[in-house]
Design a protein around this nucleic acid. Structure first.
Lengths: 200, 200, 200, 200
DNA sequence: ATTTAATCGAGACGGTACGTCATGTCTTCGG
DNA sequence: CCGAAGACATGACGTACCGTCTCGATTAAAT
């Protein structure tokens, strides 16, 4: 969901100048670029505004906090979130989902951006909330994938799906943020297998 | 009572020459109190010094960064880290280890302090490093517990022990920081069972 | 009542196409009201527009600067500038002129408005220029009054008329802006007498 | 009076680092330089701090408002205010006083600085008050000069000394700020003569 | 018994970023 | 095409912390 979309149903007559889409985009681009280039040092609003060639006020007008800008910037790129696979084989679907998640997060400039975003969220409650909303949809997708598998009898009736979901994302974030161990397709494969075996 | 008020009645004399243990302790106490009471807003060095009734320089003299103080403050309390159990039954040992971890983190004022600490670590590379050192010993303990189990044949020869460790701590931090789902003894039990089953 | 509330009940219709005289007047009224109520804080264009229930651009369309609006607003009221008296008696004429000047500036809401205007002029070169044009006519009127007196022999041939004029207006502004001493008819009388005696 | 002088009688034990006199002076120097070079555009705190090579907070720590800095900067230089002359001849003393005032204000970089200061005072009530305190001492000096003359019988018993004082300073500021007519020694001479003649 | 020197509380210092405010220009839409 | 609403770039504002650097006072070890 894009935090800056106009509220649906709120048909305001809208007098006055319209939002400058170019400025909007320039801000998101600048934020994303700074997120990607960030060497750990936090991204500042001043820098975003300056990079975007925009007044600081224009940023504050449309986003309630710095975090909201960053999240929006990232969501803008991640919108093509991979659809949950559904081949009828739980292990294969799960493996694909996890591998896609691992891969998407580490592709190109996304990794540093996502890492910086997570770090900002740790301090900015507003951003933390937005991020939870953002990640909730992915968790839901994974949970539905698991539900379908259980209905086909590939998981035990009493398997704790939420726990499986959190094991996947817990592992992902833990390794992604600490970076002490890899998040490869092999790991995805292994993880999918053991999760299913453990809960069959 | 305001958290930044200096502790009343604490007439702590100068000691000159040698390090003043009372001041040292006052700083850790203040840091812990602020960590525990923190409402998400970051704990500042100024606040710690003011609360402890201490000069800022006294803090910087003994700790290289704010994070080091916070971590020290927490370690001060968490020193009685439970020894890894070793009953000869992997599932029971693992269950106990996980449950102890869950419980210790959530007991008393430790939870908010630990949460705040993790949030600070997200932005402070120095603290992040310290924290990794701190957590490494627990990870090692868990890994050794698993190794012993594997040697007894309770885990497959090719089980990825690092992956199991990261699944435990990944789940722990994920749920601990987000707080969207519980970390109970039941969960610990369930987790231990599925991890072993999946990797047997 | 808040000075920036739009005037209630003032249903001023758009007129389209031609300049809206009602809007014009509403702006001057608002400017004057804000000038008069100003507590030293500068009058902003935004406040004038909001008070007048008018868009900012409507103000800028018709006046080149904020100062121009303020001056216009004041001139609108002060238009009935007293004609220089000419009874044939220099002392009496001078006294009357000075007293009228003192009185006019201090009557009703003019005083705070004029004070604020002078303060704005100190920072706004454009307004300063406009104001000098505005005051120049009064200085000229006074100078002509003095010239007539000199021609009648009531002043020395070599009297520095410009100096006398500036003494009058210098004293006026000095006391008017600082407010440390009164500007009464008595003072006007005294001033007229000493100026003539000193320059006879 | 210097606003930054330590309060007399307040013998504070003074713990903590002492005020950096070099920074203090650098700020005043910077302020004076910017005042003198100012082309009408207001002097900003940021500019003063940057020019002085000082943190903004250091300025705010010692002066309550921008105006206070500017006034202090000027007073620092004007401290060698000419002592009121006292030769026993009122006309000569008055002439000297006025000429000195005219000359001092227009010497070197004082003129633009003083003009900018007066402009700032028009908008900054705090500065206005400080400036009135500053000018009050000069007004008092002039008044005492006149009192001595009256006691010697060179002025009428009922001469309004305050009015004479305000005529001098009124004329001065009026011409100084508007710049439409000169403030020369000749004018000082003429003014002294007519003021005494008019009030003898 | 003196020195000597490390440590203390206090707080000033140069910085960076913050979020707010006012300015004057521009764009959009309804009348 | 006027007028309201309001978005825009700019840039100063005053505050909060950062980590460093004096201060004078205190006090214990080394002379």
């Amino acid at each position: 969901m894009n935090a800056t979309d106009p509220q649906p149903g709120t048909t305001r007559p809208h007098t006055g100048r319209r939002r400058n889409e170019a400025a909007h985009q320039a801000i998101l681009d600048a934020a994303l670029r700074l997120l990607a280039e960030s060497d750990g040092t936090p991204v500042t609003i001043d820098a975003i505004a300056r990079t975007a060639g925009v007044g600081k006020q224009t940023v504050y007008r449309w986003w309630p906090s710095k975090g909201a800008v960053l999240l929006d910037a990232l969501a803008d790129r991640a919108d093509q979130a991979a659809p949950a696979p559904s081949t009828g084989d739980l292990r294969a679907d799960l493996r694909t989902f996890i591998a896609t998640t691992f891969d998407g997060a580490q592709r190109g400039t996304t990794a540093p951006a996502l890492r910086t975003l997570a770090r900002e969220a740790a301090r900015d409650p507003h951003l933390a909330e937005l991020m939870q909303t953002f990640t909730a949809s992915r968790r839901t997708a994974l949970r539905e994938l698991l539900t379908r598998g259980r209905e086909r009898g590939e998981l035990a009736e009493d398997a704790d799906l939420d726990l499986i979901v959190d094991q996947v994302y817990g592992l992902f974030w833990y390794r992604f943020l600490l970076g002490h161990a890899p998040l490869t397709a092999d790991i995805a494969d292994h993880l999918a297998t053991t999760l299913i075996t453990g809960n069959a």
